[in-house]
Simulated assay, not measured.
Amino acid sequence: MNRRHFIRTTATAAATFATIPMMAFNTQDFPSDILIGKGDPDLYGEGFSLQKEAYEAFVRMKHDAAKEGISIKVVSSYRSYTHQNNIWERKYNRFTQQGLNPAQAIEKIVEYSTIPGTSRHHWGTDIDIIDANGGENGDVLVAKKFHGNGPYCKLKEWMNTYAESFGFKLVYTDVANRKGFKYEPWHYSYAPISIPMLKAYTKLDLKSMLQKEKLMGSDHFTEEFISRYIAENILDINPALL
C-alpha cells in the first residue's frame, strides 16, 4: 500500500532564501521556495516522490501499461535543491579533473543536468522512467535504449500513444532545431501542474538568483550565459508544456 512521504531539505539549504510562510498550494499558488527546490512540499510514493495529483495519475498510467507487459519504473522524480547541488558538484569536479576549464565544464554539465534551483525535478511533477522488464544494466538513461531494438523501446512506443491521456508529456523532445538540454526520451512531466508552475517560475528574478547562489563554478556565470540558459535550457522545451 502506498504511504505518504514527506521530503525535507536541510536547514542549511533553506537558509539561503528568506523564509516564506507555507500554505497548502494549488495550481494558482506556488511559493518561491517550492519552485526552487528549497521548500517542504507534500509528496507521495514509495521509491519515488510526486505531488498527490501527479502521483495518482502516474499510478493509473503504470497500471494500464502493466496490462501490455510494461513495468514503468521511476528512476528519478522529486529532487531538492541540495540533491541537485550534489549532482552539480559531482559533475563539475569530474569534468574539471578531466582537464576542462570551468566554463567548458559548465557547458558540459548543462547538456543534461540543470543548475540547482532551476530543475523541473524540484516541482514534484517530473519523472525519469524506464521499463523494469527491459533490465537495468549499465547506464539506463541513454537515448538509444528507447528506440529501435533498445530495451525500453516498447515503453517509449506505449508512452507516445498513451502518456498524454494521463496528463504526462515529454519535456525535452528530439525536434531538430530545439536548443538547451539534449533529447531525453525518458523525461516526462505532469502537465496540469507543471505548466502553471513554469509560468510562476518565470516570474522569479532568475538572473539575480543565479548570481547570488554560491555554486561551484558560479563565478563563470556571465550575463550572456544566464540569459542563454534561461531562454534555451528552461524555456526551449516541448511547446505543449509552455
Results as ranks from 00 to 15, higher is better:
K38L: 14
L204W: 11
L198E: 11
A15V: 03
D64G: 02
G150Y: 11
T27S: 10
N101H: 08
G217E: 05
V59E: 15
E164Y: 10
P185V: 07
Q98H: 10
Y188K: 04
D29R: 12
G135I: 10
R79I: 00
A66Y: 12
D219F: 07
A24S: 12
E107D: 03
N26S: 15
W158T: 12
G124H: 03
K73C: 09
V59I: 15
F25H: 14
H122T: 05
A15W: 08
K52C: 10
E223S: 14
D40K: 07
I7C: 06
T9C: 06
T202E: 12
Q98T: 05
M209T: 00
K182T: 05
T82N: 05
K212T: 03
L206D: 00
A105Y: 05
S165N: 13
K212H: 06
H187V: 09
Q104G: 07
A105W: 05
T118W: 04
N177A: 15
I127T: 03
Q211P: 00
G99K: 13
T118H: 02
L198Y: 11
R8K: 14
M216W: 03
T82A: 07
F6P: 05
E224C: 01
H122A: 06
K156Q: 14
L100F: 13
R94M: 08
W88H: 04
N93E: 11
I20Y: 06
T9H: 02
G69D: 08
D42W: 04
L215M: 01
Y188H: 02
Q28P: 00
R94W: 03
Y183I: 03
L155V: 13
F181R: 06
Y201E: 01
S227W: 04
Y229G: 03
A240W: 01
I127Y: 02
A132G: 14
A132D: 10
A65M: 04
C153G: 07
L198Q: 13
N137S: 15
Y78P: 01
E213F: 06
Y44I: 09
F225A: 00
G138S: 12
L170V: 12
L242R: 15
D42P: 01
K199P: 06
N137V: 14
S189M: 01
E46R: 14
V75Q: 03
M197Y: 10
A191W: 13
T222L: 03
K108V: 00
D139G: 01
